[in-house]
Design a protein around this nucleic acid. Structure first.
Lengths: 189, 189
DNA sequence: TTGAAAACGGAGTGGCCAGTCCGTATCGTC
DNA sequence: GACGATACGGACTGGCCACTCCGTTTTCAA
């Protein structure tokens, strides 16, 4: 229970800069990029990076968390759209387009033996819930096939992102979206 | 033009062992596993590993090459199946099932800034050609949608493998296969 | 069988990188 | 404006890991 008093103005600014720089650097140089590179890109000393994120792993974690949070928020936003089918498919497509090279952070984490922690769990739950809402509404409207679950959708999000890293082409995404459509729905004509 | 005379018996044996061990070790510990770990798993000294593969990158490359070669061979084998649609879909499914955790090697390579070299090019071409044959035959038979190209199929192979790492579930694969089917063909009923 | 060529093993080396430490700079409060 | 608290920068350290080197072992051809 640390009585986390608000950060000083410069500290807040630097924390944000580091997060930003880390996202950029890791996206383009891979997660093996050194912390010093991140610090340089942020215009900050390494010490500062490590003060805010005691470990490189913590930094990675924070990035993943931020991303998951953003995606969850977007999912909730799409839930407001009138057409259940469009809401689901638009969310899916937008997420894939926006995450092509970034979702891999998640995998980077998983690969390096990082176990999900208590901080991540609620966010993950939040995401799952938001996607489930979108999915189930779309399924009730017979826009999405009934036999897929939330986990399948998440797995397909990851898969579609990976496919996109292979080609900038939209075709693979289209194929996956079509595969998700319910038999009767307009899609593959 | 090195006059590569045949390897001595022990050398051949060890080379194979190293390749084997490397595949296992990198698959389960990630490509960040040290060369020494690979050597130990192969029952060999590090020196031996480096004699056969002058660089860790070269070892990774060799693994990817071997895998691509195997997949290409399998693609050619499936081309012999009577039903063009089944040939394509069975090949796709088998490759994904067999490569779930292994195709990532390819990505590991790509990520660490490894540029495709002259050795890889012919094998890649071979693979592309074999897949193209399968794909086009299936498309002519109206089993696979006409608007996807070989590159899309390869991207989707990678994507499906990634999805599979997320869930052992078959559903995501099914979704992708269904997305690939031609409109009229039997698939999503 | 024997000896030269080919391989082997593994201790050693150099470089890189995560993480620390502390003297200095900045902030914010009175 | 002044002082304590907070944050900063970056030189430094320890450990790990790719790769080298060479004395020893194995192969194989004659």
């Amino acid at each position: 229970m640390t009585a986390d008093r608000p950060l000083r103005a410069d500290a807040q600014r630097n924390r944000a800069r580091v997060l930003d720089a880390a996202e950029r650097v890791f996206a383009e140089r891979g997660t093996a990029a050194s912390t010093e590179e991140v610090a340089r890109a942020a215009g900050v000393g390494v010490g500062t990076v490590f003060r805010h994120f005691p470990t490189k792993e913590a930094l990675l974690r924070a990035l993943v968390l931020a991303r998951l949070t953003r995606i969850a928020a977007e999912a909730r936003a799409y839930a407001a759209a009138p057409d259940p089918g469009a809401a689901f498919f638009d969310f899916f497509a937008a997420t894939v387009r926006g995450s092509a090279s970034k979702l891999e952070l998640l995998d980077a984490l998983a690969e390096s033996g990082v176990h999900p922690d208590e901080t991540a769990a609620p966010v993950a739950a939040e995401l799952t819930e938001a996607v489930a809402a979108l999915l189930h509404r779309a399924q009730r409207a017979a826009a999405v096939r009934a036999d897929v679950g939330v986990d399948d959708v998440v797995a397909l999000l990851a898969g579609a992102s990976r496919a996109r890293r292979h080609t900038p082409d939209e075709r693979p995404l289209t194929v996956i979206l079509d595969g998700l459509r319910a038999p009767g729905a307009p899609g593959t004509p």
